[in-house]
């Protein structure tokens, strides 16, 4: 079977890094490029963090290209309060730069033209890179086979305001340009489903006991996140949004979808809100919106793939009801 050609547009980021691990170890993917954007952390450190994650899983071969340093219009606000000063929990502070492959937007455009209708894009950060491409050349993104976005919130509170999720709130104008382009085969994975993906202290403790460098890395980068979640919202454990997108590409039964028209608010107190009209009849405007998630299936997939050597222990813990 042909591998799925995948570009990940990303701003690592703690949960982003976990998504990169999952993608890096999954043989179903041909990782065409990681294109980096300022979001959780500014683009230069985000690129170093991406490289760091890929090295951990022995995938230093993957192209990493840096993109937008700033949102299109808004002043840039990072999320280092959540992700730590280095973007990955203040343990590693990666310093190694990725090899220069040119700009993210150029890399994405070139790959889409080279492999028309063959490439899936997983967009896990603010949509600044994709919007920049759209502004320059509205046609090129139509060459993507599928685009899956982590962002927005529908019927749950946002994480930057009561109605806004960080990726869209950080660069609402980019999100608006993206959704107003009405590309076909776009799927939105909002907070409504990612909130259900809670990496619990029990899971972290199990991973800690695996005692491999990869396990140590996962435990180390998520520690900060756990403390943040507790301090912020009295949640015990940390929500890991981004790996859900990658897992969905591997197993479509993890999410259920519903068609809706996505519009983005770009001003006022609701800035960054994703407004979804599920009654929209014009099919050209519709995207897929994730409605529900099988979190058990997600974690089984995520854990047994990233920690494939400890598969038996993971299965045993699931059987004992200790982690799921």
């Amino acid at each position: 079977m042909d591998k799925m050609k995948l570009i990940i547009d990303v701003d690592p980021g703690i949960d982003d890094s976990l998504a990169l691990l999952l993608a890096g170890v999954s043989p179903e993917f041909e990782l065409m490029a990681l294109t980096v954007v300022s979001g959780n952390i500014e683009v230069n450190q985000a690129a170093r963090n991406a490289r760091f994650a890929m090295k951990i899983v022995g995938r230093d071969d993957v192209t990493i290209a840096k993109g937008c340093e700033l949102p299109l219009v808004r002043n840039y606000v990072d999320a280092t309060d959540t992700h730590g000063k280095d973007g990955i929990g203040e343990v590693y502070y990666p310093k190694e730069e990725p090899i220069d492959h040119g700009s993210a937007t150029t890399v994405i455009s070139r790959l889409l033209r080279q492999y028309p209708y063959q490439i899936t894009i997983a967009a896990l950060g603010p949509l600044s890179n994709l919007a920049t491409i759209l502004k320059r050349d509205a046609e090129v993104l139509t060459l993507a086979k599928e685009i899956v976005i982590m962002g927005g919130s529908v019927n749950v509170c946002g994480n930057c305001s009561p109605v806004a999720e960080y990726n869209f709130w950080c660069d609402p104008h980019a999100a608006k340009i993206f959704f107003d382009a009405h590309l076909t085969n776009v799927t939105l994975v909002p907070l409504d489903v990612t909130y259900k993906i809670l990496l619990t202290p029990n899971m972290r403790e199990m991973i800690r006991q695996f005692k491999t460098p990869l396990a140590q890395y996962v435990v180390n980068i998520t520690g900060f996140y756990v403390d943040f979640h507790w301090a912020q919202e009295r949640t015990l454990g940390c929500v890991i949004n981004d790996p859900l997108v990658i897992a969905y590409l591997l197993d479509r039964s993890i999410l259920t979808l519903k068609k809706g028209h996505v519009q983005i608010e770009i001003e006022g107190i609701a800035i960054g809100e994703s407004v979804i009209e599920f009654r929209e009849k014009d099919s050209s405007k519709l995207s897929n919106i994730a409605q529900s998630v099988d979190s058990k299936k997600f974690f089984e997939l995520f854990l047994t793939r990233v920690f494939s050597e400890q598969k038996d222990d993971i299965q045993l813990m699931i059987e004992k009801g200790m982690i799921l």
Binding site: T200, P201, N202, E205, V226, D227, W230, L236, M322
Partner: peptide, 12 residues
Amino acid sequence: FDANDLAFIRLA
């Protein structure tokens, strides 16, 4: 007392 309980004890 699982790791969830212990994390709770540390944090709360």
